[in-house]
Nucleic acid binder design. Structure first.
Lengths: 135, 135
DNA sequence: GTAACTGCAAACTCTTTGCATAATT
DNA sequence: AATTATGCAAAGAGTTTGCAGTTAC
């Protein structure tokens, strides 16, 4: 950890204890914006941090979700993924390649009249990404 | 199975083989509209159909999803649930009672300019349902 | 009669937990 | 120094699979 990353800065602001796994996991999610799974995060970090364990990735992501620094996603096929972008947007799960892509949605998408308290909206779609569409 | 249910009628139209588990599971999901889990479906049907197995509920629901008769949902906490209502709507996962409620969304909620092929949109929200809000 | 489906049990994958060690404040 | 988090291994839950027997067409 040569310099202070965005992840570390946000973590310091949040007031929770700064540890190497937390900084590295959060940094990975923020930098890649690939909505990774725990396994994916672990696989990509274990070379640079050999002592990191998969259980810790589960623990760290859970904690960051509790702190509202991450959003936990559940893909149509049941994978647990994480998203560091908190502003409202949609996720497209490509039926061909399996990757997850962001797309824009209207801010005022709820047209409901009932008296529900609605927050943390996630828009999930299946479809085909632009790469796979052109193949 | 005294009379022909809605589930059976739709199944016949779809052309797949009609079996007791398929009719019963699909009927249950359509009638309850409670977005049940496999366990929930199994627990509620095993009294009337003692030979039914949980594995069959998994198999049947998977098949109905493949046939586009059901939508598979993934709740914020990772539960696998099913929805027989195919028209676009939102799901509210109540943070208090854990139940799932439908809400209305705009048909034109996608404002994206990119060239993704988007279908099967699911809007998922966490929040508080009207019952829990008034307690 | 043939092909497809069910139901059971066992296997597998993903996730959580308990606890001793280590790191942060 | 006290508290909190990590990392390992083992346990647990949820889901899938193989196969013999059964059912739908």
């Amino acid at each position: 950890m040569a310099e202070v990353t965005e992840a570390e800065r946000i973590l310091r602001n949040s007031g929770i204890r700064i540890t190497r796994p937390r900084v590295e996991v959060y940094d990975y999610i923020l930098s890649k914006r690939t909505h990774p799974t725990c396994e994916e995060i672990y696989d990509n970090l274990k070379d640079v941090s050999p002592s990191l364990s998969l259980a810790t990735v589960y623990n760290v992501t859970e904690r960051l979700v509790d702190e509202h620094l991450l959003l936990r996603l559940n893909s149509p096929n049941g994978e647990r993924r994480f998203d560091g972008t908190l502003k409202m947007h949609g996720h497209l799960y490509c039926e061909v390649c399996g990757n997850v892509y962001d797309f824009d949605v209207r801010d005022d998408l709820v047209s409901d009249e009932s008296d529900l308290v609605i927050k943390n909206i996630i828009v999930t779609a299946s479809g085909i990404c632009s790469d796979c569409r052109c193949d």
